[in-house]
């Protein structure tokens, strides 16, 4: 994003809108700190500028990565979906992606609201790639960038900053606790925050499989969740 200096009247109305804190104010004019801007387009889309001074510049690689993981109106070619992730549990009643005995784990790097350089995210992808049995979700828009044997990302995108990006993996039940502990330890060495979640189906005893494992290991989980209620059908009537 850019600001047309000729149009800016220095009203400062746009300053608080930037989720990345990337709008600066000097010499009675607003400008964009391009190193911090994540290309989420909030400033442009909300229409806060009375002079329409925001300008969406063309984004070339590797800067284009910022918009892909920050502006939720980007439609990913891998999924056909807008947003940062996949259909995950939202269509599990149709896709059968998560089965009993298998747990989905998502690590959203930079969330809530802090953002992240991709080099920080790479610390997590390397840690997870080192655990045998962890499967990266092929339809996740980030997975195509990760070297699945090492967890490394392309060197030319490591300094790019995004609002958040999601690593999605599936693990056998027996690996869940090791994976959660690895995520926690790795997050402590990262210069950002991560939001973590666990997806599962009910076990034979009717309890959610993920919750039962976490509860048994005394691992904290929040009281709110989201639930697919099983109304989906493979063919719409």
């Amino acid at each position: 994003m850019l600001i047309d200096e000729e149009k800016c009247i220095g009203c400062k109305q746009c300053l608080p809108y930037c989720p990345a804190g990337a709008i600066l104010f000097h010499d009675k004019k607003a400008s964009i700190d391009l190193d911090e801007c994540v290309e989420c387009n909030v400033c442009y889309r909300v229409g806060v500028c009375p002079e329409e001074a925001f300008v969406q510049q063309p984004l070339a690689w590797p800067r284009s990565v910022r918009a892909v993981y920050s502006d939720p109106l980007n439609v990913h070619k891998e999924t056909g979906l807008a947003g940062r992730g996949t259909e995950e549990i939202k269509t599990n009643d149709v896709t059968g992606r998560f089965k009993s005995g298998e747990i989905g784990v998502a690590i959203e790097v930079g969330r809530p609201g802090i953002g992240s350089r991709l080099r920080e995210l790479e610390k997590m992808s390397i840690a997870l790639a080192g655990i045998e049995g962890v499967k990266f979700e092929p339809k996740n828009p980030l997975t195509g960038l990760i070297d699945l044997s090492s967890g490394k990302l392309p060197a030319d995108i490591l300094n790019e900053k995004v609002l958040s990006a999601i690593i999605e993996v599936a693990v056998p039940r027996a690996l869940l606790l090791e994976v959660v502990r690895t995520i926690k330890n790795t997050a402590e060495a990262m210069d950002t925050v991560v939001s973590v979640d666990v997806a599962s189906r009910p076990g034979k005893d009717g309890r959610w499989e993920g919750e039962a494992l976490l509860y048994g290991a005394d691992i904290y989980y929040r009281p709110n969740a989201k639930i697919n209620i099983g109304l989906g059908k493979p063919l719409i009537p």
Partner: peptide, 24 residues
């Protein structure tokens, strides 16, 4: 779900936030 007679199929639960909490 019980009130509407629908059956929960799959859940995703939050483990909250980890990492540099002092940034929040």
């Amino acid at each position: 779900c019980r009130s509407a007679s629908v059956k929960p199929h799959t859940i995703v639960q939050s483990l909250g936030v980890m990492g540099k909490m002092e940034k929040l």
